[in-house]
Nucleic acid binder design. Structure first.
Length: 944
RNA sequence: GCCGAGGUGGCGAAAUUGGUAGACGCACCUGCCUUAGGAGCAGGCCCCGCAAGGGAUGGAGGUUCGAGUCCUCUCCUCGGCACCA
């Protein structure tokens, strides 16, 4: 440390003592003299040591809390601990420590470290979710959910982590693996507690819209909720009372449904009397062996037909086969789908593999722009073919050159009654070119709905045209009729020539893309064909009419599942229910809350809930409820604890209620909530659901818990990688604070980049020393301070900084706020000595960023009280406007110089001033310019 | 594949409504001071060019007196969802 360095350790200690003495950061929740401002960060998990991410999360937010206080707000800036959870229990298993002791010790250690940041949080309202006085109310709220029918116990397939020996919520399964330990997840059927978040799906979605959150946060929640609108349709089983209920978003394609698929787990798979029962059961057993991950990664379609079972297409009344296949998910929709291979990629792949019929019912509409339909002409619709004949020997394609018209086409023609498309095509090829030995290869996509005006017949034509690919087996030819030869002659063209020929087919792109590509389903929109009475209507327009014709129902499906909250773990909130001898659920009566977590448990992972090993818990239940009554052994997901904690800060020590309604009316919703993006579809969604449920119970006054949500960026190691012990790139804040002081660390974190962005900022080893240097420069002004009032230049610099720091901080752009302070300091240093008045103002601006040092400087220049009790300066608007401004002079948009002008200067004055620039003077001497653009105070552009 | 956010010097990044591209800082370079420097001070620092000048915000077009900013197409990076019917 340099000789001139200030003693950060001494002054930080003194500053904190002073704040404590003056009780600066205890918020009086009932104070109505000031406007309330609830600033919240996600309460931390007490993992043990404070890392740089904590400094970033809390230290930078603290800047804003301090600024808001100076701006006269009554700021609630609380802190607590999200103290239940797996790591405590894992430590217990690993080191034989008591999870409670481990957690309490960590909380104490972290509290000390947190105080070293200089946080202005209100420690008097500290909460910890593992304390009985907190979880008392987690339990009470759970019971309210139960009474309301929002908490339900049911048997369900659940995700099970074999390593952690616990059930996981959907949100905790990432790519088929446990979010915590990466172990592949298994499926189990267990009786579990669920909170019915699905009942709130629509409101969670709708109420998202007006929130001033970043689009990426809202969109992630929307996708997670996954609303999709469609219809339920019923396919009856031939010769049975049963019907298969399917969900589809494309009922418009119902006429193309050529089979039905059930998820392997679907109850009808085992219930229906398939004649190949053994084969079906074997398939179902085989899919059960697959892990979630295998199912997701392997997209090859497998399945088994239920032999002897046929379903009835509700509109065509056709009898169609029924399959069980694991590409259909049991947990989405009805667990059964109608398969439309022509218009769904997955069904198409399955149909190809099992050779099932593919029927096109939607044809893309293409209008021949060179020859469009004309008004008032009759319309003739016909089915036709378009044949592409390929000669594998020459790799060329057969085309017709039309003599009179001069255009080139493939072979086209109508389909006669009762004629097959392939037959029709072969007939046309023979008639027009004489080639007769042809092999049908495949369709080149589905039929196209082409509209054009047929001049020779004076009518509008609709051609429902099927493009087909043939291969020439040999070049044997029959003679071609003279009438045909008079019209056109056959040519063989290669692919390049085809592209160059600009073939007269609206569907040429479709043909070309299918020639070299794979065949596939058409998933776009178009005109209905092969759909009986609906033929010729647009698919989207006719969609609901088809649902009606099929006796279906409009319905909405959501991707989101109910929230599974049971955990077979020890260190969590006990679920406050017991079971009577018949196994019926009873809530633990209010007088027995908090329903305490027993302490005599065995932590060894056995696959059974640890609470089952507690003698005390069993005895407690017997004592209170009687013989034969049994406890609930599961605990609650910790996300339940954190779904309501922000209301608890308003009544942290109140043992009579979970929060305080009149205070909530004053303080909710949280004005600004800052946290990590990893919680977007977890905590943030759960808390919104919880809050809405409480709102419906009239327990909270607002429908949403958080007004603004800011997801903060992530600090990377100096090498640009995520910090991790194995990479050896972890920055330990303690060492840096020891060397450079807390203020320098806070300021560097503020300066590192915009806070409210999904950015990843590599930690620069030189960043904190740079901030220390800046702070030392501030201290160096002190010995040379000049008594008396500030100069004009100083007052202008301060006014600018005052506005910039406040505005940028409001948007959580602390990086540019700090830069504003630096610019201001540069100006204050410009003269030999800064005035004391200016310095005092500057110290106020710096106070939120460097709270310790500014406290000392405040005293050093003889100010009374604490700088943190000072009010944020009001900037005099007259100081913010300049007397002269720089106007850039351009010639034809190129900068040629600049002139200093009064902001009010006229165009004439600007032009006159611009004469001082030689190139401009020269130009103006040549005569009047074509155009002059003058934006006062900014730019003068002369266009010659 | 669908959706969202981005792409600006060696690095982190600035740039209210279209109006001096690169503020501020880091790193680096030169000089001064110093017994010393991981200190301080002065200056330099996008590219080409001696200069005048020219080029440059992922790429290609367009609108405009003027485009990092608006429009069209395209490439790349990150994030979310994903066999969701």
């Amino acid at each position: 440390m340099g000789k001139t360095g200030y003693d950060h350790k001494a002054l930080e200690k003194a500053a904190r003592e002073k704040w404590a003495e003056r009780n600066l950061y205890v918020t009086d929740l009932t104070d109505e003299s000031k406007e309330p401002y609830y600033l919240l960060f996600e309460f931390p998990y007490p993992s043990g040591d404070l890392h740089i991410g904590h400094w970033f999360a809390f230290g930078v937010t603290d800047i804003f809390a301090r600024l808001k206080r100076m701006q006269g707000k009554n700021v609630l800036f609380p802190i607590g601990f999200d103290a239940f959870g797996l790591p405590a229990e894992n430590a217990a298993i690993k080191f034989g420590k008591d999870p409670k002791e481990w957690t309490v010790a960590n909380m104490e250690r972290m509290t000390e470290q947190l105080k070293s940041i200089g946080l202005s949080v209100d420690w008097s309202k500290r909460i910890a979710s593992c304390e009985p006085k907190y979880y008392h109310w987690t339990q009470w709220l759970f019971q309210k959910f139960y009474e309301q029918g929002l908490a339900e116990r049911r048997n369900a397939p659940v995700k099970w982590c074999p390593k952690d020996q616990t059930v996981l919520a959907n949100e905790q399964v990432v790519n088929g693996a446990c979010e915590r330990c990466g172990t592949e997840v298994e499926e189990k059927n267990l009786t579990q507690w669920f909170l019915k978040i699905t009942q709130y799906a629509e409101r969670l979605l709708a109420d998202l819209e007006p929130l001033p959150w970043l689009e990426e946060i809202k969109e992630a929640q929307r996708q997670w909720i996954g609303k999709s609108e469609g219809a339920k349709l019923w396919f009856t089983i031939e010769g049975s009372e049963e019907a298969i209920e399917v969900f589809t978003t494309r009922p418009d394609t119902l006429y193309g449904a050529t089979y039905v698929v059930l998820a392997p787990e679907h109850p009808l798979v085992s219930a229906l009397p398939a004649t190949n029962r053994a084969e079906v059961d074997a398939y179902v057993a085989q899919t059960k062996l697959k892990t979630e991950r295998e199912r997701q990664e392997n997209k090859d379609k497998t399945g088994v037909r239920l032999e002897g079972i046929t379903a009835v297409n509700p509109v065509t009344k056709e009898l169609i086969p029924v399959f069980a296949a694991d590409y259909v998910l049991a947990t989405y929709g009805t667990g059964a789908v109608m398969a439309v291979p022509a218009h769904d990629e997955r069904d198409f792949a399955f149909a190809k593999k099992y050779d099932l019929p593919i029927r096109y019912v939607v044809a893309p509409k293409m209008i021949d722009t060179g020859n469009p339909p004309q008004d008032g002409k009759r319309v003739v619709k016909r089915y036709s073919i378009l044949a592409v004949v390929h000669d594998p020997k020459t790799k060329k394609y057969l085309s017709l050159k039309w003599k009179e018209q001069g255009w080139t086409t493939f072979i086209t023609g109508g389909i006669d009654a009762d004629e097959d498309v392939v037959e029709a095509a072969k007939r046309e090829i023979l008639e027009e070119t004489g080639y007769k030995n042809l092999k049908f290869i495949r369709r080149l996509g589905g039929p196209v709905w082409a509209e054009f005006f047929a001049a020779h017949k004076d009518e509008n034509r609709i051609a429902i045209n099927s493009p087909l690919l043939f291969e020439l087996e040999n070049d044997e030819r029959d003679p071609v009729a003279q009438a045909e030869l008079d019209q056109h002659e056959a040519h063989w063209l290669d692919l390049k020539e085809i592209a160059a020929e600009k073939m007269r087919h609206a569907e040429i792109e479709q043909i070309l893309s299918h020639l070299d590509g794979e065949d596939g389903a058409y998933t776009g929109d178009g005109m209905l064909i092969n759909s009986e009475a609906f033929d010729g209507r647009e698919n989207r327009e006719a969609l609901w009419d088809i649902v009606t014709a099929a006796d279906g129902e409009k319905t909405t499906n959501y991707r989101i599942r109910d929230w599974l909250v049971s955990r077979q773990r020890y260190w969590g909130c006990p679920i406050p229910v017991v079971y009577d001898p018949e196994g019926k659920v009873h809530l633990v009566p209010a007088e027995h809350l908090p329903w305490l977590l027993p302490e005599d448990v065995d932590f060894k992972p056995t696959g059974e809930a640890p609470l089952a090993s507690s003698k005390e818990l069993k005895e407690r239940v017997t004592r209170i409820f009687g013989e034969g009554w049994t406890p609930e052994y599961d605990t609650l997901d910790t996300f339940v604890d954190s779904s309501w904690y922000y209301t608890r800060y308003l009544a942290a020590d109140d043992d009579t209620q979970f929060s305080n309604f009149s205070l909530m009316k004053r303080w909710l919703p949280v004005q600004r909530y800052s946290g990590g993006s990893e919680h977007t579809t977890m905590h943030l969604l759960y808390a919104r659901f919880f809050h809405k449920a409480l709102y419906d119970l009239a327990l909270v006054p607002t429908p949403e818990p958080f007004h603004e949500r800011f997801n903060r960026a992530i600090i990377l190691g100096p090498d640009g990688n995520k910090m991790s012990k194995s990479k050896g790139n972890v920055i330990n804040p303690d060492d840096i604070v020891e060397k450079y002081g807390a203020d320098a660390v806070r300021m560097y974190l503020a300066f590192i980049g915009p806070y409210n962005e999904a950015g990843h900022y590599p930690w620069s080893l030189d960043g904190v020393p740079a901030m220390r240097r800046f702070l030392e420069r501030v201290t160096k002004l002190v010995p040379n301070l000049k008594e008396g009032s500030a100069t004009e230049a100083e007052r202008k610099a301060l006014a600018k900084a005052t506005v910039k720091v406040a505005d940028d901080s409001e948007r959580f752009k602390f990086n540019t706020a700090v830069s504003g302070l630096m610019v201001c300091l540069n100006e204050l240093e410009a003269s030999k000595s800064c005035s004391k008045e200016a310095f005092v103002e500057f110290v106020k601006l710096l106070a939120p960023f460097a709270p310790h040092l500014t406290e000392q400087l405040w005293e050093a220049v003889g100010q009374a009280g604490s700088v943190h009790e000072a009010l944020w300066p009001a900037a005099d608007p007259s100081l913010l406007t300049e007397d002269t401004v720089t106007v850039v002079v351009q010639v034809a948009g190129k900068k040629r110089g600049e002139v200093m002008l009064a902001p009010t200067a006229s165009e004439e004055e600007a032009l006159k001033a611009a004469q001082s620039i030689p190139t401009v003077a020269e130009l103006l001497a040549q005569g009047t310019p074509k155009r002059v653009v003058y934006v006062s105070g900014k730019i003068l552009n002369i266009v010659p």
